[in-house]
Amino acid sequence: MFKRRVLSVQCVLWGMVSLLTGWVLIHLLTSWGIPGQLLWALFVNAGLLLLARPAAMPTAQRDLCEAAVQGWARALQMGNPAALEHSQRTMLLAEWLGRELHLNETDLQYLRWGALLHDIGKLAIPQNILCKPMHLSEEEFQVMQKHTEYGLTWMETLEFLGPAREVIHCHHEKWDGSGYPLKLKHKDIPYLARVFTLVDVYDALTSHRPYRAALPHDEALRIIQERVGSHFDPEIAGVFLSKINEQNKIARACDPGPC
């Protein structure tokens, strides 16, 4: 047990040192005129490919994977400070909803990882689009949509992520087939992606965005209800809508201070 804890600490420290080194190198190279978003994309991809190699010590593999996922989620914060908070909130909500849907522990782990990394592809999206204080133009939205493809491209060789990669790739698909990037419909959309899509939209609606203020909880639920059967899987949405008020009461009771 002591050895495993030491290995876990080593994994976390290794991840922190790697991120700090990457941050310094990227700032240096951007001063030479190389686009920062491109450098972040290359940095993330290179690190994940290294992680994809078999672990030298199998007992440390899960700790290493968890530390890496947490580290890459934090990399998002460097480009967009609100991104990590969004990923962490959706991870908690997704795990709660997954338990309400009776997912097993393995699928819950994949769902958590997918939630943390669902927006990793946004490292390749220009800041003027990510942080635009108004709605995107059609051309800008087309660029934004590419983040799901970028995310899959960086993660698809990482077998340890399993179905978490489907969450990254398919969390903007819609039940009626009008989503992106593949326009999947109904149960052709991977199940974990269908679960995550709902909590992702809920958190987006109830959080501040550059182009609008956060919506009240009841207004967000009204919008979700209107989209059942078009945007959301009716079965998953039914569980969410029937349980979310109870979940919010528990969360408020456990919160010692204001948000």
Rank of each mutant, 00 (worst) to 15 (best):
W32R: 09
W32S: 08
I34T: 11
P35L: 04
P35F: 05
G36S: 07
G36Y: 02
Q37P: 14
L39A: 02
W40F: 08
W40P: 00
A41G: 11
L42T: 06
F43C: 14
F43D: 12
F43E: 07
V44Q: 01
N45P: 01
A46T: 09
G47K: 07
L48D: 05
L51D: 00
A52C: 05
R53H: 11
R53N: 14
P54D: 06
A55N: 06
A56T: 09
M57D: 11
P58Y: 11
T59P: 09
T59L: 07
A60E: 08
Q61A: 07
Q61K: 08
Q61W: 08
Q61F: 03
R62H: 13
D63C: 04
D63F: 05
L64H: 05
L64S: 09
C65E: 05
E66A: 04
A67D: 01
A68C: 09
A68V: 15
V69G: 00
V69L: 08
Q70C: 13
G71C: 06
W72V: 05
W72S: 01
A73M: 15
L76C: 10
M78F: 15
M78E: 07
G79S: 14
N80L: 08
P81R: 14
P81V: 14
A82M: 11
A83M: 15
L84H: 12
E85I: 14
E85S: 13
H86Y: 07
S87E: 08
R89L: 14
T90I: 11
W96K: 06
L97P: 00
G98L: 10
R99G: 03
L101W: 03
H102K: 13
L103W: 03
T106N: 10
T106H: 11
L108W: 03
L108R: 02
Q109Y: 01
Y110T: 13
Y110H: 07
R112I: 08
G114E: 08
H118P: 05
H118N: 11
H118W: 12
D119V: 04
I120R: 02
I120G: 01
G121E: 02
L123Q: 01
A124E: 11
I125C: 04
I125N: 02
P126H: 05
Q127W: 12
N128A: 13
I129E: 03
K132S: 14
P133E: 15
M134H: 13
H135A: 15
H135G: 13
L136C: 03
L136Q: 05
L136W: 03
L136I: 06
L136G: 05
S137Y: 13
S137T: 12
Q142N: 10
H147A: 02
T148L: 08
T148A: 15
T148D: 00
T148P: 03
E149A: 10
E149Y: 10
Y150D: 10
Y150N: 05
G151F: 00
L152G: 02
L152C: 04
T153N: 12
W154M: 15
T157I: 12
T157F: 04
E159Y: 10
E159S: 10
E159I: 01
E159L: 07
